[in-house]
């Protein structure tokens, strides 16, 4: 159980850090205006001036990818925040207090996991309608059960540990025990779950926008751009490749962080 840096964690942090910086930069500045069309610069292959080339309308793809990644990144962060906070809350309560509430919530959880996550998100979107905020809401809701399941196990395992018992004997309230004593000790489980959740959120958002039921234009997201690029696959394959590469790198980086965290916890040999 070496609690130090390892290669995977470092590589993941460097990759994700670089991408995050690029994406943050993209909120304020992009090399070109991502929506500006240019008749003279149509369908240019990647070059030093246009890192990922240009599309049918002469728009700079690298600038578009930065903007799109920003949207995807933000949605994934918000989704994980919603799923993580509420899921941990449900998991903590059901794991710590067993009984009727536990069984009811867990049955409901089982029923929810019977839907593949993208399907559930589709249903919610079909009811609420598309758009950035509804996507966040739908995905956030969909991600609650998986977080609840993971944290419930962690909290249930800690319920009868000695330090929790002594805290209880010393008169600490349930809220204090849960937040001050148990929560920090579930981080080992929670942090890798967050990395997996983030990646699933990126995937889910990109899939939904690809299907045209997620983020609506003028908001660009990577999934929407990928579906747009499919029409230009013959003339500008670099559009699809650049966009897809951004998704892959984003998930790959966070995946490496997750792998590194699990190794640091000694879960994988």
């Amino acid at each position: 159980m070496k609690r130090k840096m390892n290669g995977y964690l470092l590589a993941g942090l460097v990759l994700t850090g670089t991408l995050t910086l690029l994406i943050l930069l993209g909120f304020f500045w992009t090399p070109y205006n991502p929506t500006a069309m240019s008749g003279s610069e149509k369908l240019l292959a990647p070059s030093l001036w246009h890192l990922m080339g240009t599309d049918n309308f002469g728009r700079d793809i690298f600038s578009r990818v930065l903007k799109g990644a920003g949207t995807t990144f933000l949605i994934a962060l918000c989704t994980v925040a919603i799923g993580g906070v509420f899921g941990t809350l449900v998991g903590a309560l059901t794991g710590y207090f067993d009984g009727a509430v536990d069984s009811i919530l867990m049955r409901l959880n089982d029923a929810m996991t019977a839907f593949p996550s993208i399907l559930l998100a589709l249903v919610i979107i079909s009811i609420l309608g598309g758009g950035k905020y509804n996507v966040i809401l739908a995905l956030g809701l969909v991600f609650i059960p998986s977080f609840a399941r993971v944290t419930r196990t962690a909290f249930a395992a800690l319920r009868d540990v000695n330090y929790v018992k002594s805290a209880r004997l010393m008169g600490a309230g349930s809220a204090r025990i849960l937040i001050a004593h148990m929560l920090p000790n579930t981080m080992q489980v929670l942090l890798p779950a967050v990395t997996i959740g983030f990646n699933n959120a990126v995937l889910a958002e990109a899939s939904m926008s690809y299907l045209g039921i997620g983020v609506q234009p003028p908001d660009a997201s990577l999934g929407y751009m990928l579906s747009e690029s499919q029409g230009m696959l013959g003339s500008a394959p670099w559009y699809a490749l650049g966009t897809g590469l951004m998704i892959v790198l984003l998930i790959f980086g966070v995946g490496l962080i997750g792998e590194g965290l699990q190794r640091r916890n000694g879960e994988v040999d």
């Binding site: 990646n199 995937l203 990109a206 899939s207 690809y210 999934g223 990928l226 690029s229 499919q230 696959l233 699809a240 897809g244 998704i247 892959v248 790198l249 984003l250 998930i251 790959f252 995946g255």
Partner: peptide, 9 residues
């Protein structure tokens, strides 16, 4: 990390 729809494209 490679989403199925990207592999598809």
């Amino acid at each position: 990390a490679i989403p199925p729809f990207f592999t598809g494209v």
